[in-house]
Design a protein around this nucleic acid. Structure first.
Lengths: 139, 139
DNA sequence: CCCATTGGTTGATAAAATCAACTATAGCAA
DNA sequence: TTGCTATAGTTGATTTTATCAACCAATGGG
């Protein structure tokens, strides 16, 4: 069936979204999947700026600006003017942000384990590898 | 990195969404990804009802009702009262619907080919297989 | 110094998803 | 039969997400 790839992608994404939302939203504040992505990027990027998030997520910068604003309102992150470039603000975790991020990693790992149970590392790697190739193919 | 699975899923989905939208929206009417899913389900399901679409997509029935309404407005499908159950309407393609669906399959195949170029059938099967297992794991 | 570019913010709007209430039919059971 | 509950579908209201366009301030090259 021609559409099984599309269907599978949709179903997987839909399930993942719901599961991660339950795992995270459950206890914590009103964070959605995009907030979570932002937090990951901030955690992984040294001197992270809003623009870094835009580039890594490929989303509209307006959307990112608003997500960042929300994260600041939630006191999970803060922004400080960059010394080198006054247009930039460097985003970083607050203490609360760090604490929440740890919980987040935990919840995520839980979901990952659930999602990958009965799959071996080889299968997971192959999966990621193929997905990456598909992504490249579409760019 | 813990989040690479999540990131990959997001990126893949995002790319797919954009690519398929371009491939389809380009020439045709204003169909989005969910319209397309509906058409697929209608095509694949004998005596398809709105409820079949709800079950297969796991979306809110209100959303499906509106998508179906739009497809009817576009004269791509029609609905006829079921003889067995007066609550149900059976959805089916109009002539135009059939014609468009053929074009759609074509466009999709194009996207699929693009997405799967430099992947062999084995890899694609493995990918689908793993994705299906992940979906099951999350239900 | 000028100007095109870049990082970021905001308002407006579109598109997608969700919730709740409601109608009409179905089907079971007392 | 009547009464009750469940199912299929529709609609209105609202929320969430995403996108577009205009804008400001700072940058950096010519």
């Amino acid at each position: 069936m021609n559409s099984s790839l599309a269907n599978t992608l949709f179903a997987l994404m839909q399930n993942y979204r719901v599961t991660i939302r339950e795992a995270i939203n459950a206890g914590e504040l009103g964070l959605n999947a995009m907030h979570v992505r932002c937090l990951h990027i901030i955690a992984a990027t040294t001197h992270c700026t809003a623009n870094d998030i835009v580039n890594q997520t490929q989303r509209d910068k307006a959307q990112i600006a608003r997500l960042v604003k929300e994260l600041i309102t939630l006191k999970l992150i803060g922004k400080d003017a960059s010394e080198h470039d006054k247009r930039c603000f460097i985003l970083s975790f607050t203490a609360e942000g760090h604490a929440l991020y740890d919980k987040l990693l935990n919840a995520e790992q839980h979901v990952n384990e659930q999602m990958c149970k009965n799959l071996n590392p080889q299968q997971i790697n192959d999966f990621l590898d193929t997905a990456q190739k598909m992504i490249k193919n579409m760019q």
